[in-house]
């Protein structure tokens, strides 16, 4: 086991005005350089946990450390360590990819020459060069997903949180995105990924955790979990661990 990129200890959180706890004493450790996948049924708490890890939600009790920095205490320095690809398109649709990258690059603290260099690289790698100056609002869903990802990786974050990064994209675009994520990981970025696309997850993730009703019910390398539960795929493992009936706990 390597150094922990993320260490969550005794995490507790409940939404304001709700008696039921979203998490109670949740513990989780994600190693630096991992391709970590967080899975669970709808409403299990995946997005909430990701929001706690990125500081979007202030947790009530416990601790979350990103590369040794407490999220709740060192907000500014922690924000330099990671980037977040939200499920929604978090970009300016009226602006072109270049203009979006320029702006978010500046907000990441990059200098103008660094922004220009990185913009060029990302546009090439993600196959966006021909659309560099067109407004994002004219793009297909897949192209928008690529821009959404490019913005997040502008400043080469050490940890990259991805919430459903390939929703609604075609196979080719998914392929480009997954390959690029693997390349990022090879260069040292820890990936924290959540999705309902289990085939894609199986291809990308080396370590997974299953979450249900706000608790981690399984956490290990994918291979170990498959062997342990005698399953040959993530989908079977998912159904075995979370049950076959439909679950949608609202709010979490």
């Amino acid at each position: 086991m390597g150094n922990a990129a993320i260490r969550i200890q005794n995490l507790g959180y409940s939404y304001p005005g709700q008696l039921r706890n979203c998490f109670t004493d949740l513990n989780l450790e994600i190693n630096e350089g991992a391709r970590f996948g967080l899975f669970g049924p709808n409403g299990a708490g995946k997005t909430t946990l990701m929001h706690c890890m990125t500081g979007l939600i202030r947790y009530t009790t416990g601790s979350i450390q990103l590369l040794g920095n407490e999220v709740a205490t060192f907000r500014k320095s922690v924000n330099k360590l990671f980037a977040f690809v939200p499920q929604d398109f978090s970009l300016y649709h009226e602006l072109s990819p270049v203009e979006n990258l320029e702006f978010f690059g500046a907000w990441s603290g990059m200098t103008t020459p660094a922004i220009r260099k990185r913009t060029q690289e990302l546009l090439e790698v993600l196959d966006l060069a021909s659309l560099r100056n067109k407004p994002v609002q004219t793009f297909s869903g897949g192209m928008k997903r690529k821009v959404n990802l490019a913005i997040a990786v502008m400043n080469n974050p050490r940890i990259l949180f991805l919430d459903e990064p390939t929703v609604g994209v075609d196979i080719q675009t998914r392929h480009v995105i997954i390959n690029y994520l693997k390349e990022l990981n090879r260069n040292g970025t820890t990936l924290v990924y959540t999705s309902h696309q289990l085939n894609e997850a199986e291809e990308l993730c080396d370590t997974i955790a299953m979450i249900a009703s706000g608790s981690i019910i399984a956490h290990n390398s994918l291979n170990n979990l498959l062997t342990e539960h005698k399953e040959d795929g993530l989908e079977g493992l998912f159904l075995r661990l979370t049950g076959k009936s439909y679950i949608d706990v609202d709010v979490i």
Binding site: K76, P86, D88, F89, S90, W107, S108, G109
Partner: peptide, 17 residues
């Protein structure tokens, strides 16, 4: 609504800017 706030909040720059 379009989630830009969420991204901006996770960046190392204060929203006051």
């Amino acid at each position: 609504l379009n989630g830009s706030f969420i991204r901006l909040k996770t960046m190392p720059t204060n929203y006051f800017v």
